[in-house]
Design a protein around this nucleic acid. Structure first.
Lengths: 217, 217
DNA sequence: TCAAATTAAAGAAAAAATTCTTTAATAACT
DNA sequence: AGTTATTAAAGAATTTTTTCTTTAATTTGA
């Protein structure tokens, strides 16, 4: 499948595991605030209502070892998780499409905790161009190519209307973007080695609405 | 596990399948626009780069049958998917926390395609109370209880700061909410029968950043 | 110092999801 | 009308993920 995988030395961590890691991190940071120095997998599992052995397996990807009868060192584990996830680095990103969702992501403070820094936003709407949201300037989309040459940005956040998503995604790739966080409903057709992470609101809505419907008989 | 399941007659559709369904729906609507009356699973699979037999399995949940050598009737399938997902009904929701993300969701047009209608937003910030975003009024959080008595709203959208998420979620449940779309990082501890769908930005960021890191050596 | 209890780690088993294979149907072409 | 190619459907096999079980380590308390 993914051709880029075959040169990997260590096995890729599974997506379910990766998605759970920020949850552990958030909880551990809470615990650290409360002065908890050590924490065991069963304690984490109980609080997050998941299987303790799964907690152990998930956390093992960081390389941190826990001590029997003591658990993990909170600080050490937090640090290792941040390191593993790349949250303690600065990961620069472009955002294209400064509409409602795009603006919200620009203003969203918590991205900084993820080490994600949107350094510029682009749009074609002249009303938006020149303005700033959350301290991030909205630039003319035409400047994407000239700007990207200097900046070496690897991450693109795609919050355009669906009908232009494919074109913009291709432009991003041509500008050196290697990973796209796709908030549109478009099914992006891009080179194999481009990482596409789609966050589809409608997928979540689908699960929610269906489960709700299931539940009332 | 989920006690509410044991009274189910037909088996619950798996979450991976549910999450894929809106993708099919979006694609089918595009095809319909272009005048495509029938479409085969292999065609869908090719375009959405997924396994054709998986397409067949996924679509079978709607009860629609395809014809050999012809495929599915586009219109019929769209209708069945909308019906199955509840996108053609009006699903009323409360939103609590009219910050950046909350406001974006209020203004987000595409929710209407999901049949999701935010009928009121609540916040404790007096600066926000009384204003409107996307035609939705922001009300005093204290009015949640009095208002919910009349309205019988089943869905709650949670976009508060993390530290109040648990309390607000409990309030929602006490107001009759049966399903919560959780955008916070909090690990909500709620009664078994409450449906919680967490859309964690950090989970997506984790996968994206890690895969990007994996890919460069 | 020596049990006892708790825990992480590693591997086995189970469950879930995806992919593969076979079969039967049917529309298009000869 | 008969043949061929394409397709959906159903079930088998594979893969992935989660849960269970066992083992070994180690701190605590007697």
């Amino acid at each position: 499948m993914n051709e880029s995988r075959k040169y990997k030395t260590k096995k890729q961590v599974s997506e379910p595991t990766l998605k759970r890691l920020p949850g552990y991190l958030y909880f551990l940071e809470q615990q650290k605030e409360e002065g908890v120095l050590n924490i065991s997998a069963p304690t984490i599992g109980k609080k997050l209502s998941c299987d303790p052995t799964q907690v152990v397996k998930d956390l093992s990807v960081t390389g941190i070892k826990g001590k029997p009868r003591v658990g993990y060192n909170t600080y050490e584990l937090i640090h290792a998780l941040e390191e593993f996830l790349g949250f303690n680095r600065i990961n620069e990103a472009f955002l294209v499409g400064a509409g409602n969702l795009g603006s919200a992501l620009m203003a969203y403070q918590e991205h900084q905790e993820l080490g994600l820094k949107i350094i510029a936003a682009f749009d074609t709407d002249e009303v938006k161009i020149g303005k700033s949201v959350g301290g991030i300037h909205i630039l003319d989309y035409n400047k994407l190519f000239t700007l990207s040459g200097r900046l070496n940005v690897k991450i693109g956040i795609l919050t355009t209307p669906n009908n232009v998503a494919q074109d913009v995604a291709e432009d991003m790739v041509n500008c050196g973007v290697r990973a796209i966080w796709n908030f549109t409903s478009a099914n992006l057709d891009l080179p194999e080695d481009v990482i596409v992470q789609t966050t589809s609101m409608s997928s979540y809505a689908a699960v929610l609405l269906r489960r709700l419907n299931d539940s009332d008989k």
